[in-house]
Design a protein around this nucleic acid. Sequence first.
DNA 1: TGTAATGTTTACCAATCGGTCAAATTATCT
DNA 2: AGATAATTTGACCGATTGGTAAACATTACA
Lengths: 214, 214
Amino acid sequence: MAIPRAAKTQRRTRIQEEKEEIILEAALDVFSVNGFRGTTIDQIAEVAGMSKPNLLYYFRTKEAMHRALIDRVLFTWLEPLRAFDANGNPESEIRSYIRRKLEMARDFPRESRLFANEMLQGAPHVEDELRGPLKALVDEKAEVIRAWATAGKITKCDPYHLIFSIWSTTQHYADFDVQVRAVLGQEHAGEGRFEDAARYLEKLFVDGLGIRRS
Amino acid sequence: MAIPRAAKTQRRTRIQEEKEEIILEAALDVFSVNGFRGTTIDQIAEVAGMSKPNLLYYFRTKEAMHRALIDRVLFTWLEPLRAFDANGNPESEIRSYIRRKLEMARDFPRESRLFANEMLQGAPHVEDELRGPLKALVDEKAEVIRAWATAGKITKCDPYHLIFSIWSTTQHYADFDVQVRAVLGQEHAGEGRFEDAARYLEKLFVDGLGIRRS
DNA sequence: TGTAATGTTTACCAATCGGTCAAATTATCT
DNA sequence: AGATAATTTGACCGATTGGTAAACATTACA
């Protein structure tokens, strides 16, 4: 009778899963470049290769698409930080954290830019998640770092700003990709730039934090 | 008779200077948050406290406003890098460069976000400036850094990625301000965070680059 | 195979978009 | 003060916006 909104159904159809995936993929393309306000449903529809009302059959509003994307990104985005192990030794933990974050910048630049766009706008949709789960996780890992410093494994430093500096340096290669390419020029802008960055950043942090090399 | 567009006049009126300043100030507010596509002329007009046609009397199009802003920001943004002195000693040059960039993140966050927005969108309006003047300036300073390494004043490292890492770590405090505040929480989010960041970053880079302290 | 639920599209809506126009107002200069 | 140039605004335009209604097409399942 009335239109049975996809969201209302109990079981998700095969078509629903496929189409929702296609839509979110297209939405990520557009949102990550133009931000929320700058994105139109028509743009997403065109990239997704379906009609606008069809998008709105799966996601009632533009907000709903954005929300679904943000939720997904927020979760996977913190994976590397969660993997940060208190029992590991500082050198390998820092090194692999940097490497993992750089890999994400290389392999998921759109997700990084979506997040960056949200931050630039003042996090209107995710401020609660920042103050809650994110802060809690960072607090926990900051304590690990502080313990390392107390144990003399690394030099004393502000663990929060340490985490910020790893975030910013790695995400830079996704968010400011155009600038990085332009400055490096044709000759050094090949995909090798991520390995160069990894080599440079690992050394910067290992030496900068006074980590005894093993 | 016909409307004498402000742009056509030879001498700039006092009113012209004042109003153009007010408009650009308002435009910076809105563009820096919502990006180019996400910004409407009506929004700018409301912030500026004048009617939309009045804005368009001073700037013919939305692009013109954005262009004027970007040009202004691009110039002042590179000031700290230009001040980077080949004859200075590495420690003081690096330290003051970091400090200057952090001061800009603190005092001109909107300008930083405007630039970040432009980068996220793939620099559609400024790609030429990146490949031209910016690359030239970075190339020049990279040579300075390489010379320092050759002279044994700092450890060998990729000068381009070094510059990227200073850019990213400092601008982070402007572009990701919400996140920084949220993670630091009420207690540490006061204005002291910039001094904490300066202390941490200066140490990170001085030690990380193997600079002999004087 | 038939039919009910699910999926898709064309046509459309009111609101907002960037921008124009002409009339009205204000500042400037003699 | 009066004339002229500069400034400001309300009314408006066609295009685009987010979203809806309803008819049509397809799928899943008895």
